[in-house]
């Protein structure tokens, strides 16, 4: 339930389709502003609106996000317990991170979440999208799929406990079908996988909703033609769905990267008690920052938390840049 993390993550998926929708609208918009650039008096007057229109949003953004971010960078060069004088450390917090096995493990966990859970989420989202495309009751289904995003992480963590603990529902069902020695789902060595499962479950609803919106815009005749040409489901996906929703997938990949790296609430909620932290075995980089600053005892290490946040942000920036590079190609007009 925490923070704008959720605000952003809840909100994010919607970005996809309208902004980069593959449909022809794009052609228009490219033309519209450019057409006006030379000498059209209406255009000239219109452009006078630019600064007053953008300025309020930009000022807010600058004052409450960019300036504090610069502050965070400054803090990351210090040792600071949150009040009182700051002690200059230079890059020491950063070199410490490189040597801290817990950070490296958290970093690895984050990458596993990013790529492992990411692959699962996207595979499931595409699967659901394809299945939902022709189903009766699709709009009901897609609304309900979105629903886990509204439920607080705390509830999910309790639910996961009741489902997967030693005498939980899953093991009872497995017992009924003859599996008497099921894995210890919530034991330390499996706990992170169970957390990933929860993340995949909630995220799938999200990305399905976006990808569906994009796929909906693909004219049905293309699929009909495909079917006629004897293409199977995979071929239809490969040659129609994928290329025609490519831009939206690119946006989804960016959003996923950002949200995956910011994931921490569900992990924190799995800790079980209100004040404690979960075992470092399941930390992500976000949780690492949180733990450094908010541990229930000990001197808060805000410098370290800030350094971790900056590293995280750099990771986001690099990945987003790479995704954009990899995904870039010509828009298909249809």
């Amino acid at each position: 339930m925490t923070a704008s993390t959720v605000a952003a993550s809840t909100a994010d998926p919607a970005v996809g389709s309208p902004s980069e929708s593959p449909a022809g609208a794009r052609g228009h918009n490219a033309a519209a502003p450019r057409g006006g650039r030379d000498g059209n008096p209406f255009r000239a007057r219109q452009r006078r609106l630019y600064i007053p229109f953008v300025a309020p949003a930009f000022v807010l953004y600058l004052a409450f996000l960019i300036v504090p971010l610069a502050g965070t960078f400054w803090i990351s060069l210090h040792k600071w317990p949150g009040s009182g004088p700051m002690q200059w450390e230079g890059t020491r917090n950063y070199t410490y991170l490189l040597h801290d096995p817990v950070f490296l493990h958290s970093f690895r966990n984050t990458l596993v979440l990013l790529f492992g859970a990411g692959a699962a989420t996207f595979a499931l989202s595409f699967g659901l999208t394809m299945l939902l495309r022709d189903m009766v009751g699709r709009s009901t289904a897609r609304s309900i799929i979105f629903f886990p995003n509204i439920v607080p992480a705390l509830v999910l963590s309790i639910l996961w406990g009741f489902l997967f603990q030693a005498d939980g529902l899953v093991n009872k069902i497995l017992g009924l079908i003859g599996v008497h020695h099921p894995p210890a789902w919530l034991a330390q060595n499996h706990l992170y996988s169970m957390i990933l499962l929860g993340v995949v479950w909630t995220s799938t609803g999200f990305y399905t909703t976006i990808i569906m919106a994009a796929v909906d815009r693909i004219p049905p005749y293309l699929y009909e033609d495909c079917a006629l040409a004897g293409a199977n489901a995979w071929q239809r996906f490969r040659h129609v769905t994928l290329p025609l929703s490519w831009d939206v997938i690119g946006i989804c990949a960016v959003l996923w990267t950002i949200n995956a790296i910011k994931t921490f609430e569900f992990v924190l909620a799995m800790a079980g008690s209100s004040s404690g932290l979960p075992t470092p075995e399941v930390w992500t980089v976000s949780l690492y920052a949180y733990a450094s600053a908010f541990a229930s005892s000990g001197v808060p290490q805000y410098g370290l938390a800030a350094a971790d946040s900056i590293v995280t942000l750099v990771l986001v920036a690099v990945l987003v840049f790479l995704i954009r590079r990899v995904m870039r190609r010509d828009t298909i007009e249809f």
């Binding site: 406990g161 005498d167 919530l186």
Partner: peptide
């Protein structure tokens, strides 16, 4: 007690 290492507090 069995299950102590694979349960969620307060089970």
């Amino acid at each position: 007690v069995s299950g102590y290492k694979a349960s969620k507090f307060p089970a």
